[in-house]
């Protein structure tokens, strides 16, 4: 079985969000991590590899420094890594991104494609399903459990207060929830291998099944007018009182603010 996991390097929002003067994200000033949902998807793929045997390839589109994220995936146990990078691909929205990644996937053999549900920087949840449309394969989104049954996958899809069990013939695409699988750590030996691994790099010219009308900023129907950080709340007030006094204090404050 061949599994391709699409992963994205995203800014680590734990350290705060930084913007360029034009309102776009200042990615260079922020630490970068593997998108959490993608990491859960990678873990799910590695578990399928452990259980059924599989070759796991990770693929990302991004700046050259996204190789760090690919190396992390290799150090966790992925077998191959591919980076799609080119200046002309920059500024892509979900349409341009999914078109580009799908063109990369067309160069590969796969039974299963796993993407994260959504990335923490864009939060669209569109790229995975769009890729499946470009490739004309079934998609099962919001996966919380994946099992293999011969040529089929059986997936639990999270849905409000319940889940659906769906069965699809491979090849197909699954979008993974963060809670699908708790990611494993890298291993020290895995890191040594990852650092020495050959990472395949594809530029625009390598993606023959891609229309120039669908790439980069120019090929993106979505235009971001402005982005800004959320207005942060004040630090608030901390009081250390025993529960009875604390309740009385709280009631008094709520009363003062005419909240009750």
């Amino acid at each position: 079985m061949k599994i391709v996991v699409c992963i994205k390097q995203v800014p680590d929002t734990k350290g705060g969000v930084q913007f360029n003067p034009d309102g776009t994200l200042n990615r260079a000033a922020m630490l970068a991590i593997m998108n959490p949902d993608d990491k859960a998807g990678l873990e799910a793929a590695l578990r399928l590899k452990d259980e059924y045997g599989a070759e796991v390839t990770v693929l990302t589109m991004g700046l050259p420094k996204a190789t760090d994220t690919l190396m992390e995936a290799l150090a966790m146990g992925a077998d191959k890594a591919i980076l799609i990078t080119d200046r002309v691909l920059g500024g892509a929205d979900t349409w341009a991104t999914s078109s580009t990644i799908a063109a990369g996937l067309k160069k590969l053999e796969y039974d299963l494609i796993i993407t994260g549900r959504q990335a923490i920087d864009g939060d669209t949840a569109q790229v995975g399903p769009q890729i499946s449309e470009h490739l004309d394969i079934p998609v099962i989104s919001y996966a919380q459990d994946i099992k293999i049954d011969g040529d089929y996958v059986i997936v639990q899809r999270q849905f409000d207060d319940r889940y659906h069990v769906l069965k699809a013939k491979m090849p197909c695409l699954i979008t993974a929830l963060g809670e699908l699988a708790e990611p494993r750590y890298m291993t020290p030996a895995g890191i040594v291998d990852a650092v020495n691994a050959d990472i395949t790099v594809w530029n625009r010219a390598d993606l023959t099944e891609l229309d120039d009308a669908n790439i980069g900023l120019a090929g993106s129907p979505t235009k971001i007018a402005k982005a800004s950080d959320k207005v942060r709340k004040g630090a608030g007030e901390k009081v250390e009182l025993d529960p009875k006094e604390a309740v009385a204090y709280l009631m008094q404050k709520l009363d003062e603010k005419h909240a009750i």
Partner: peptide
Amino acid sequence: KYGMMGVPIPREFGGQGCDTLTYVLL
């Protein structure tokens, strides 16, 4: 489970085969 009880021991014995600096960092 993650190889950290045998960081400098060669892989042929199940270790991680890393150098002493890696072990020191651990």
